[in-house]
Each structure stands twice: as C-alpha cells, then as structure tokens.
C-alpha cells in the first residue's frame, strides 16, 4: 500500500536530496525512487518549479563528453527545507499519536 504524495512533500524530498550534494536529474529520480513509488516523469515539473521559486539553481558540468545539468540548493531552498522538516515533524507526530497512542519525539 502506498500513500499519495502531496506536491509539497515531494518538494521537500527533492530539496533534501539536492541538499546532500548537487546532483542531476537521473540521480535525483533514482534516489527518490528508493523510498517512494513515483513515476519517472514526476520529477521534472518539480525541479522546474523549485527552480522558478528560487529554491534551486542549475549549472552545467562536462561529463563523458557532454554537458550535464546539475541542481544546487540555494539559501532560499535551505530555508524552505528547514520549514519542510518542521512541518513534517509536526505531521508525523500527529499521525504517530493516533497510530501508536503516544508522542514520538
């Protein structure tokens, strides 16, 4: 069973992946797919939106005789990610309280 993923949660996940290290589209998709069942075509619109919102920037780097586009988190992106972490913790605590009858830290 899988839960539908809200687009704000997906934004937070992608920001977290890119925060670890600047990386490229295919790798981001692979990383996210390790934990979530998302379609391969879901991530481009997310990356594009985060870029438009100023959370991510891109730069090109030569790789294997071609240019590869890397995504890099911005200060604004980091701030958003902090907020996502807080929101997620509150959300998870609420669900945990119902599921397990007690607050998880």
């Amino acid at each position: 069973m899988s839960y539908p993923i809200a687009s704000s949660l997906l934004d937070g996940i992608v920001l977290a992946v890119v925060e670890r290290e600047s990386t490229y589209g295919y790798r981001i998709t692979q990383d996210v797919q390790k934990v979530l069942e998302i379609s391969e075509s879901t991530l481009y619109p997310v990356l594009r939106r985060l870029q438009k919102d100023g959370c991510l920037t891109t730069y090109d780097e030569a790789y294997a005789g071609r240019n590869r586009r890397y995504y890099k988190i911005t200060e604004h992106g980091r701030a958003q990610l902090r907020q996502h972490r807080i929101d997620w913790q509150n959300y998870r605590n609420g669900i945990d309280a119902i599921f397990f009858g007690g607050e998880s830290q």
């Binding site: 490229y24 295919y26 391969e40 481009y44 619109p45 594009r48 071609r66 590869r68 586009r69």
Partner: peptide, 28 residues
C-alpha cells in the same frame, strides 16, 4: 540527459518507465 545518464542499454526501460510522451508532456 535522462536517457544519456540511464545509458543506451536502458533505453527501452526508460521509455517504458517514463510512459507515453503525451503523458510526460501533460505533466509538464
């Protein structure tokens, strides 16, 4: 780039994973 990074050996898999071009376009 997605195709490039997946490698030519995965071309068919990428196409089937991505879904139809129309579906990809609709999301964008």
């Amino acid at each position: 780039e997605y195709f490039d990074d997946a490698g030519p050996e995965n071309e068919e898999k990428v196409i089937s994973d991505l879904g139809t071009p129309e579906k990809v376009a609709a999301q964008i």
